[in-house]
């Protein structure tokens, strides 16, 4: 019923709401749940542009109310102005832009987690370098989960042997028993998330999506030289930690 036409006041409000939604998630770091950190300046710019366009469209709408349509749409004749909105075929589609606004303000979808990680079978994409350099000194030494998996699967664990490592990720229940420590990485946005998992042994159970720091050592047995190998770590200690600012690795 609503829209054969999309009036400028409604256009203005949709632009303002969308600008506000983008500003909000960029301001609060929630944007890191959806896209990469590098997008931040572009998101601020986008929010600013949307808000400016929205305010100016509101000015237009006020002018229309004051019955000054010549200034607002000088390219049209009087008659065309009457009809203007009627041949704006796609106007109904504009309303759909309220959906992301509502999703952001009302639902605030969380970062992807255990559900996505458990679905992926590809676990270890072959790394660029044939052999990774030795781990830096330290005991335990913090290692990114993806790096750990790459070393375990594609270097036969050579650089991990005899080392105590610290891994950070979220708990993903393994349907075959126990749990994986998992992390997702994104190339652009959450639609392209790729997961990495490590089977954790010698640790108690935690609810799915609990962020933990695992200190332990790699043991052979998870398979090597195949993209669906899932390496194993024997935990010396597991500590529940707050979710990192950027949930993706």
């Amino acid at each position: 019923m609503v829209v054969a036409d999309m009036r400028r006041d409604v256009q203005a409000i949709i632009l303002l709401l969308l600008g506000g939604a983008v500003l909000r998630i960029t301001w609060t770091d929630a944007y890191l749940n959806y896209v990469r950190e590098e997008m931040r300046p572009f998101l601020f710019l986008s929010a600013a542009l949307l808000l400016v366009l929205g305010v100016l469209a509101l000015v237009d709408a006020v002018r229309i109310l004051r019955s000054d349509p010549v200034k607002v749409a000088p390219g049209l004749t009087e008659e065309e102005r009457e009809l203007e909105d009627d041949h704006d075929h796609g106007a109904w589609s504009t309303w759909l832009l309220l959906l992301p606004v509502l999703a952001i303000f009302l639902i605030a979808p969380p970062a992807l987690g255990a559900y996505t990680a458990a679905r992926e079978e590809t676990n270890a994409i072959p790394p660029a370098e044939a052999q990774a350099p030795p781990l830096p000194p330290g005991d335990p030494v913090p290692v990114a989960l993806g790096d750990f998996v790459g070393r375990a699967v594609w270097d036969n664990g050579l650089t991990l042997e005899g080392r105590q490592v610290q891994l950070i990720g979220f708990v993903t229940p393994n349907p075959a028993g126990g749990w994986w420590l998992a992390r997702l990485s994104i190339a652009c946005c959450a639609a392209d998330a790729v997961s990495t998992k490590v089977q954790v042994e010698g640790a108690e159970e935690y609810p799915a999506n609990t962020w933990v720091s695992v200190v332990g050592s790699w043991i052979p047995g998870g398979g090597t030289m195949s993209a669906d190998s899932v390496p194993i770590i024997v935990a010396d200690s597991v500590e529940v930690i707050p979710a990192p600012r950027n949930p993706y690795e």
Binding site: Y34, V35, L43, P100, C189
Partner: peptide, 15 residues
């Protein structure tokens, strides 16, 4: 997950 992917595509595409 669907909602997150939806918002992610929109946010990535907007700029």
């Amino acid at each position: 997950t669907g909602a997150t992917v939806f918002v992610a595509i929109m946010i990535q595409a907007t700029p």
